[in-house]
């Protein structure tokens, strides 16, 4: 495969996949340790009504209003879950199940009711994304990486995800100590005066932002898988938080790259002539990594 074809067709989807995976895996580590792993699942469901409402308000498919709508829906969902959990004294899992299914159902209904036949907005796209279509048409080869005119034609998803991934990385680095302390020892965190609730809510909002940015590019399957599988696999391999986060980033990037390659070329190797869904393949690869970690990970048992 020549450099030109690779840069134009594969480089940007690969980068987008890797960035999306990393942006979700980093907060996923903390959600996992705080026993909130399924928040990612809930967020990725409620993103749909947020996007549909944003579309109905603005009347067109444009990225920023939709991302705002999705982020707002995620915050609304988290608040509602907390409200009904307290009011009804319901266990968190059930409260989550009530809210995210109802909001998702509302989103689907709105989508069916509104006239979206002439725009590219449907449930399947929301679930599966379209990583393969995020190509860089202006690229003529590796030299295009230095050509400002070609760079202007980069898919906007790439820029957005790069910004969000950087944001996730910087915030995690800045708040490392408070995050670590509140995650592992709530009592001690309270003793040294750390605002546990604020940090918890901040983490959920950051996860929502990462999920929404990634969702926009790659669909919700990868988002849920990346929130859980790489951190869970890393958790089975180490007892140090620093190592766990680093490992999860590595595994996330690896599943994105391997998944993309297998989806694009795997069927060709097996003698078929069509590629399969990259999003599905990336999730599958991350699952296989978790399986391997669960079988041979050095810290797989309760210590």
């Amino acid at each position: 495969m020549s450099g030109q074809v690779f840069v134009a067709l594969s480089l940007t989807p690969l980068l987008i996949g890797v960035l999306a995976a990393i942006a979700c895996a980093v907060p996923g580590n903390f959600l996992l340790l705080r026993r909130q792993a399924l928040i990612g699942d809930a967020i990725s469901h409620v993103v749909l009504p947020g996007i549909v409402v944003a579309f109905l308000v603005t009347g067109r498919v444009s990225a920023w209003p939709m991302m705002l709508g999705a982020a707002a829906a995620a915050v609304v969902a988290v608040v509602l879950i907390e409200v009904i959990r307290r009011l009804g004294r319901i266990e968190p899992g059930a409260a989550m199940g009530v809210i995210f299914t109802a909001m998702f159902a509302g989103g689907v209904l709105l989508l069916e009711q509104s006239d979206t036949s002439n725009v590219h907005l449907d449930v399947e796209h929301a679930l599966m994304g379209n990583l393969e279509s995020l190509i860089w048409l202006d690229a003529l080869g590796w030299t295009s990486l230095l050509d400002p005119r070609a760079l202007a034609g980069l898919p906007p998803e790439l820029t957005r995800l790069a910004v969000v991934t950087a944001l996730v990385a910087v915030l995690t680095w800045l708040f490392w100590r408070p995050l670590k302390i509140t995650t592992f020892d709530e009592g001690f965190a309270h003793g040294v005066g750390l605002p546990n609730t604020v940090i918890g809510l901040g983490l959920v909002i950051l996860s929502a932002v990462a999920a929404v940015a990634a969702f926009d590019a790659v669909g919700s399957i990868i988002v849920i898988a990346m929130f859980i599988c790489p951190p869970a696999a890393a958790r089975l391999m180490t007892n140090r938080l620093e190592t766990q986060v680093a490992l999860s980033v590595l595994l996330a990037a690896l599943s994105a790259i391997l998944g993309y390659i297998f989806a694009g070329f795997g069927p060709l190797w097996l003698g078929f002539d069509n590629s399969v869904s990259a999003a599905g393949m990336i999730a599958t690869v991350s699952g296989l990594m978790l399986l391997a970690a669960a079988i041979v990970g050095p810290h797989r048992r309760q210590t």
């Binding site: 026993r35 599966m128 849920i224 089975l236 869904s277 599958t284 699952g287 048992r301």
Partner: peptide
């Protein structure tokens, strides 16, 4: 069999099986 909690297991199975299904 591992130290992961049940909700982590649920999330992992849910996303991986669904992803594999979408691929199919």
């Amino acid at each position: 069999k591992t130290r992961l909690s049940e909700d982590t297991a649920i999330g992992a199975v849910l996303s991986v099986f669904f992803g594999f299904g979408v691929m199919l």
